[in-house]
Write a protein that binds this DNA or RNA. Sequence first.
DNA 1: AAACTCACCAACCGCAGAGAC
DNA 2: TGTCTCTGCGGTTGGTGAGTT
Length: 299
Amino acid sequence: MAPRDQREMSSDEESAPAAELRRGPWTVEEDLLLVNYIAAHGEGRWNALARCAGLRRTGKSCRLRWLNYLRPDLRRGNITASEQLMILELHSRWGNRWSKIAQHLPGRTDNEIKNYWRTRVQKHARQLNCDVNSQQFKDLMRYLWMPRLLERIGAGAGEDDAPPQAGQQQQLPAAWPVDDVEVELSCTTAASSSSVSTDGTLQQQQQQIVSPAPPPAPAAGGDGSYSYSNNNSNMWDTLCQPPRTDYHATTAAETACSWSDESLLLAPCLYGDMGLPELGETMWGAAADDLWYTQIMGL
DNA sequence: AAACTCACCAACCGCAGAGAC
DNA sequence: TGTCTCTGCGGTTGGTGAGTT
């Protein structure tokens, strides 16, 4: 179609009477119209598409609905540990460049990642009474959560990540960026060692993890009740996991993290400085978490 | 059981860049 | 070169369901 024709086909959404345009949640019928039209004609030229498909929606709305909800290659379900790790790392590099981050998480939308960041990460930054962009918070992510996530991924304990077999390379759900950045994260504990390398694979150097026992009951609160809450759905929960029996003897001092960024070699020292409790210590339960975070953040 | 709070997420809004004319 | 339109991005909002009091 010639560009001129395209422009004539495209009706500006503002030119249509506002009363004719639908807003709010999409109906099943609308979804069907959109999906069927895109299946037949492809996506793009959203304003024209909206009109030709018989949808009383703006082109923008159609595009958003397709990209964020109807696209067949969308990945549903919780953000996995490796995806969380990827988000944390890429956000530390690029900031709120959600679409750029999403490009490295196939099946995830920028909206989804943005929502994840705002609801999970920022919430806990608020709880820690520090800014999500502060150095304190970034250090916490870099030196604590990310190694813990790597540990978790390495142990095959990611929520949706299939446990890797010994000596086997596991393809991460998302391709690690290799074009414009160099990323190599690795984390070693006494129990296991794993790394994410630039070829987008998770390598399990040593897999001695036995099937983890169910988490023990959390420590009782002051009133004798348990305030433990964990749906295993995010990195904070990951961090707050009750001790795994196979990690029980692993102290923070034994945790050595090596990163391509030389500054990260300071991690073990920081752990000491921050008074990271041994993994076997009771540090979970909402009250305990708050206390611990407050302590390590020096707040 | 009802009221309230919180978390999640779909959807909208405003803006900026790119391309066509 | 200026204008218009489309597209894409990031920020924000509002609805809904789950959990708590």
